[in-house]
Design a protein around this nucleic acid. Structure first.
Length: 699
DNA sequence: ATCTCTGGCCTCCGAC
DNA sequence: GTCGGAGGCCAG
């Protein structure tokens, strides 16, 4: 693929073509060198940018929010230009390369005007970008490392959350990363005492930039906002980066959780038990009011409980490093490390906006609701064989969707509008009846265009797409940190840092596809997303065909994987090698792809496996990536009740026992299996189960 | 304010 | 009793 010329870069230098109707955009201060920003938030009609000076003192800059859109200069005739220039709704017009930046007086106007332009057939770009995102992309804002603390509140247990405006805060606790701790306790049940309590809290929070709370988005943060408002506290809470530690934990832990037991509850105590081995506290938070009211020892106990919960978050972070991982993602993408910055949609949008700007490109505006039909997704094979299958080899495509996006150069702006079929050279949709006897002729793929399988969409291969460029950048960074990781001693802080960064880039790369497929995203493109998934369907089906032609039994497959029986390990290895060396290059060439990033990998073999139905199986490895399994090796269990947090605990335990007997030990004696089953049957029928706890699962 | 996607199994519950 | 829609949770 061709590299973009340096000219495009130079072209991007801004040039003022007309003096703005009202004033120079003088509140764009010259960008401060080497300043990294902690946060940006709206305050009335300004954006406040937060940073710290060399002494660590917080400084705030105020800039005017810009609501702008871009139009291709080629699409602007002199009438339109005069109209824009004369409009009192337009604050300024700036030529940037082949683009015209139209700065509107406010956001609603920007939206309405862009809709009106679109209605006139003039496409607008980035009309929907928020002023903070606009500013931080235009000025290439760098993300600072915030000073972090953890916060937990205890509130009046007699009041429900829906009445949080009337929910008195009884105790707060703050823990910093260096284990420094503060706790505030309400002195008496009066508004004045609560106001003092909140003022103390804000004073303690003052040196910190990021506040993490377990379930903070749903509880602590709204409560704090509501009570600060009720007590008429004037301090702007927008200054802090509010981060819901629970939501972040869920997002990052989704992949890691082992069994259903671990997913039962995301209550702080449960997670703490699993992650840092902390036992349950005997305080009942639903009695917080009574404990506070009792005063003395009981009140102290509640305060201790509050502090302990706060400190658990610090310890969970010390163990998992998820907030640090978020920091890396945010620094790369240009989002702030609060709850919003943890959303992949925001990360990808922010990253691509900056990349596009560098390349002198812009996204299409998304001002109307484009939701509609679901698009087609992956191929899932019904398991072909029942019972225990021996010696099953598994291959999977490494990073299938990213590799497809790269190989087909898929991106919303490389998508080419495909002409419809013709009859005798006339487009079929306006074909007169006397030509109807001519056969339908479908357009053939031109040069420098590749065609997606199944959707048959066309993509320009001549200029590198934004999405592939972004992916490449992430993958290069990932490689850099993997090399670094391999060069330092395992387990050291340097190693952990490299590992975290490498993981962050992988997470970012994998989220691109999902974001393009999300109707809520500004980068949504159904045709691109469907082309990605359908190329995956095509590749796996072609591979299955070839394997079967070579006499192998394909017993199962899901999205990017193939489970194959009836061949020796070496034979399968040769097959995988052949697919990579010959099959995929041939297939991709036939579609006009310029690059081939498709790679099948021999991942593992199962000595025994049971496929229950699609997405449910249990198997025992004989090797994983060439490393032989040992006596300690655990089985791989997918989708079964054992893995589900909503199943009955007794069923999970029984399933575990049967899997250990049949799959792990390889003991298929009917009598032994029946032993287990009848034992559980007895327990249920004889009514030995007394505690609901033994069942679990039901919420 | 909130938001990555689709495919699939399973339970629950109401309509017939 | 059977069917289908809704919703939960999981695979990838």
């Amino acid at each position: 693929m061709r590299k973009r010329s340096e000219a495009a870069r130079a072209d991007h230098q801004q040039q003022q073509v007309s003096s703005p109707t009202h004033e120079q955009p003088d509140d764009r201060p010259p960008r401060l060198r080497n300043v990294k920003y902690l946060n940006a938030y709206y305050e009335r009609d300004k954006i406040v940018l937060v940073s710290r000076d060399e002494q660590g003192k917080v400084r705030s800059q105020r800039v005017r929010p810009e609501s702008s859109c871009f139009i291709r200069r080629a699409a602007v005739d002199s009438d339109l230009y005069r109209m824009l220039k004369g409009s009192s709704l337009v604050r300024s017009l700036v030529a940037e390369g082949e683009w015209l930046r139209v700065v509107w007086c406010d956001r609603p106007t920007c939206r309405d005007a862009s809709l009106a332009l679109e209605a006139k057939g003039i496409p607008t770009y980035e009309a929907d970008i928020s002023p903070i995102r606009r500013y931080s992309a235009d000025n290439r804002i760098e993300i600072a490392r915030p000073k972090r603390c953890y916060l937990d509140l205890e509130t009046d247990s007699r009041v429900s959350f829906s009445k949080k405006e009337e929910m008195r805060i009884l105790i707060w606790s703050v823990v910093a990363e260096d284990e420094q701790t503060w706790t505030g306790v309400l002195e008496e049940d009066t508004d004045a005492a609560e106001q003092r309590l909140l003022m103390q809290l804000l004073k303690v929070l003052d040196p910190y930039d990021q506040v993490a709370s377990w379930n903070g988005d749903r509880f602590d943060f709204p409560v704090l906002r509501a009570r600060a408002k009720a007590r008429e506290i004037k301090i702007d809470l927008g200054r802090w980066l509010w981060l819901d530690h629970l939501e972040l934990f869920k997002r990052m832990n989704q992949m890691a959780a082992e069994s259903g037991d671990e997913k039962q509850s995301y209550a702080l105590q449960a997670i703490a038990t699993a992650v840092v081995g902390e036992g349950k506290d005997d305080v009942d938070a639903s009695q917080s009011w009574q404990m506070w009211e009792a005063g003395g020892e009981k009140r102290d106990k509640l305060a201790r409980y509050c502090w302990k919960d706060t400190d658990l978050m610090r310890r969970i972070e010390a163990k998992t490093g998820y907030i640090e991982l978020l920091q890396t993602l945010c620094e790369t993408c240009g989002t702030f490390p609060n709850s919003r910055g943890a959303d992949p949609g925001n990360q990808v949008e922010s990253f691509l906006l900056r990349l596009a700007l560098e390349r002198g490109e812009h996204f299409k505006s998304r001002i109307d609701d484009k939701r509609g039909e679901q698009y087609r997704g992956a191929f899932v094979m019904e398991p072909r064989e029942k019972g225990i299958i021996r010696d099953v080899h598994v291959a999977d495509f490494s990073g299938l969707y990213p590799s497809i996006i790269l190989s087909w150069n898929m991106s919303p702006e490389t998508l080419i509008e495909k002409p419809g079929p013709t009859r005798s050279g006339v487009p079929d949709r306006c074909c007169p009846s006397y030509l109807k006897h001519y056969p339908l002729v479908y357009p053939s793929r031109p040069n420098r265009v590749c065609e997606a399988a199944i959707t048959e969409s066309w993509f320009d291969t001549d200029r590198e797409g934004l999405l592939p460029a972004a992916l490449k950048r992430m993958l290069v960074l990932r490689k850099v940190w993997n090399v670094r990781k391999a060069a330092v001693p395992p387990g050291t802080p340097e190693w952990k840092d490299a590992d975290r960064r490498s993981t962050a880039y992988k997470i970012a790369a994998n989220s691109f596809y999902g974001v393009v497929g999300s109707p809520l995203s500004k980068l949504f493109d159904r045709e691109v997303a469907e082309s990605v998934s359908q190329c995956g369907v095509w590749l796996i089906k072609e591979t299955i065909k070839e394997a079967e032609a070579k006499g192998m039994r394909v017993v199962y497959g899901d999205t990017d994987s193939l489970f194959i029986a009836g061949c020796m390990r070496e034979e399968f290895e040769r097959f995988v090698g052949w697919c990579n060396a010959e099959l995929y290059p041939k297939l991709l060439l036939s579609k006009g792809c310029v690059e081939n990033r498709i790679n099948l990998a021999f991942e593992k073999s199962f000595s025994r496996i049971v496929l229950v139905c699609a997405k449910k199986y249990a198997g025992m490895y004989s090797h994983y990536k060439g490393t032989a399994a040992t006596a300690e090796s655990k089985p791989e269990i997918k989708g079964l009740e054992y893995k589900r947090g909503d199943s009955v605990r007794l069923a999970r335990q029984m399933q575990e026992e049967v899997i250990n007997l049949v799959i792990v030990k390889g003991n298929e004696e009917q009598a032994k299996i029946e032993d287990i089953l009848s034992r559980y049957r007895e327990r249920v029928l004889e009514g030995i189960i007394e505690k609901a706890e033994e069942l679990g699962g039901e919420k």
